[in-house]
Design a protein around this nucleic acid. Structure first.
Length: 527
RNA sequence: GCACCCGUAGCUCAGCUGGAUAGAGCGUUGGCCUCCGGAGCCAAAGGCCAGAGGUUCGAAUCCUCUCGGGUGCGCCA
């Protein structure tokens, strides 16, 4: 809708237009303060400009009313326009709110180390990335989801060592635990399975640790994927860090050719300060082994090689210091670092009944994602993360999400959706049979509701483009609230307007349903 | 010390490409079921938008500084 308004306005104004939704609905559906900015360039009174503009816009069929008030131009869409749009939307649920864009995006998220189960912090990035992708795809972007698997380095050895030792303990050997190893019951569980799968003999000698590491890492990745699948999150690609190092010599040569690296103290350094980093970073150690950053450099090199238009990485906020060096590497390869966008996902703290949530022993002092899913369900988990910006600290109480009243927004929204279905059932009608009904003669509040329901497309687009997913949840809560009130104020069944109001209800339900789908939450027809 | 994020109602948070009277949920107080699902609706109370300057027709929003909280600052991954 907004697009159509833009188009019409652009015919009359040769200037960038700001369209906003007025806070007070008496001011119409859309408003523009354009006269203020025009006043500056034209050196004329904004009120006059607004009035002249309003005069012209009144001739457009799309608007029922155009007012110039205090320099604002307020626009009210015509009922016919809203009606037509609703009829189309109801008949094309699959296409409703879809857009065309075509830009391809590689979205990397989660990328948790395969050394332990996912914890609650991972869950935030996981849900956020998944929904960003869902919405982006819906509004027309081509998005592929990728998981970067850190399957190289010391941590994998430590995982193997931990499983090896736990396996020995399981077999009855006396075990002396080193200072550094992975704790938590999952290691013991893994060890038992490893003993069964690999055989007891692998636990007799430390030389088998690399083999155990490999096995444990694969198994861990499977577990992580199971955790993610429980919440409905899947990936298109997995890229193994280990596999990348085959190309290190080639990439290092490229960096050297670009003048991006230099040798000092027997190490190779990336001149990341040239592109805004605080200090240069080591990429090859004295003993010749590449650092973790080297892996990331290769990874991003090949990402750009794969030719997407845009790249998004969702990282835990504790990695923020890493952004500058990765972007520096990209710049050295001659790519525009702006094409890589890093979204940070901030910390999460959990409460239960007002008290700090008890850490799971199983996790080794982490709150496991799967425990929270078990406790509040995947939908609630999704919703809580989606009501907040990704880059602010978040604290929530799991008890609140278990309540079944309006303190729980998912129930609130789904209740509105279910109400519509219950109305149709009560009326003995199918949704399809009212699609064609004219909506003429309904009151203002009905049209306000209809207009709000039709806002979904622009809400989704705005949410995706601004990377502010909470706009979708806010909108759904708002629309559901509006419908609850409408329902309370207006009797529907058995009135002369029954079919019209049912159609309106169907439109509201459609927006709620499509909106929830974008969040990966299913809409209930009955609760 | 440096970098990033944050500071809005008692609590958890929206609002931030500057725009008309600062919002929601919870909590508190008080109303609404002989009527389509009360898992709902209505209302009241509650704010120097951390503080101070600046930019301008206009600032919660942009800039600078100060104060407060979080996180990061290995050649670990």
């Amino acid at each position: 809708m907004k697009k159509r308004v833009y188009e019409v306005l652009s015919k009359h104004i040769d200037h960038p237009i700001v369209l906003e939704k007025p806070k007070d609905k008496n001011f119409g559906h859309y408003a523009t303060p354009i006269a203020f900015s025009l006043a500056k360039t034209l050196r004329r009174n904004p009120m006059q400009i607004a009035e002249e503009l309003a005069e012209k816009l009144r001739e457009e069929e799309m608007f029922e009313k155009v007012d110039a008030i205090k320099g604002y131009v307020n626009l009210k869409l015509s009922q016919d326009f809203l009606n037509e749009y609703a009829v189309w939307a109801l008949g094309h649920e699959e296409d409703f709110a879809k857009g065309e864009n075509g830009t391809s995006i590689l979205l990397e998220f989660v990328s948790a180390n395969p050394t332990g189960p996912l914890h609650i912090g991972h869950a935030r990035g996981a849900v956020w990335g998944d929904v960003l992708a869902r919405i982006g795809e819906h509004v027309g972007y081509r998005i592929e989801r990728e998981y970067y698997v850190n399957d190289a380095g010391n941590q994998i050895y430590l995982l193997g060592l931990s499983v090896y030792l736990a396996g020995r303990e399981h077999l009855g050997f006396e075990v002396e635990w080193p200072e550094e190893y992975y704790r938590g019951e999952y290691i013991a569980d893994l060890a038992k399975k490893a003993v069964d799968d690999l055989g007891e003999e692998k636990f007799t000698d430390e030389t088998f640790i690399p083999e155990i590491s490999e096995w444990a890492k694969d198994r861990m990745l499977e577990l992580i994927n199971e955790n993610l699948a429980e919440v409905g999150i899947f990936f298109d690609h997995y890229v193994s860090e280990k596999s990348l190092y085959d190309r290190w010599d080639e990439i290092l040569t490229k960096l050297a050719d670009a003048g991006a690296v230099y040798e000092k103290d027997g190490k190779w350094w990336l001149k990341s300060t040239e592109h805004g980093d605080e200090k240069d970073r080591v990429v090859v150690r004295e003993d010749g082994r590449p650092t973790y950053l080297a892996g990331d450099i290769i990874y991003h090199y090949q990402k750009f090689e794969r030719g997407y238009d845009h790249y998004i990485n969702i990282w835990g906020a504790d990695h923020h210091g890493y952004i500058a060096r990765v972007k520096a590497a990209i710049a050295f390869f001659g790519h525009d670092p702006q094409r890589l966008e890093i979204i940070l996902s901030q910390m999460v703290s959990l409460l239960k009944g007002g008290e700090p949530y008890k850490m799971s022993k199983r996790a080794g002092n982490f709150i496991l994602m799967q425990d929270i899913v078990k406790e509040i369900g995947a939908d609630a988990l999704r919703f809580i993360f989606l009501t907040k910006k990704s880059d602010t600290h978040l604290e929530f109480d799991v008890e609140d999400l278990k309540k079944e009243d309006n303190s729980n927004p998912i129930y609130y929204i789904n209740y509105a959706h279910a109400r519509v279905f219950s109305l149709f059932e009560k009326a003995g009608k199918s949704q399809e049979e009212v699609f064609g009904v004219s909506m003429e003669g309904l009151g203002e509040d009905a049209y306000d509701l209809l207009f709000t329901a039709l806002l979904l497309p622009e809400v989704l687009e705005d949410a995706f483009e601004s990377r502010q997913l909470q706009k979708v949840t806010d909108y759904l809560k708002y629309l559901a609230g509006m419908y609850h009130k409408f329902y309370y104020d207006n009797r529907i069944i058995g009135t002369p307007h029954e079919e019209k109001l049912l159609k309106l209800s169907a439109m509201v339900a459609l927006s709620l349903r499509v909106g929830l789908k974008m969040l990966g939450i299913s809409a209930l027809k009955k609760m």
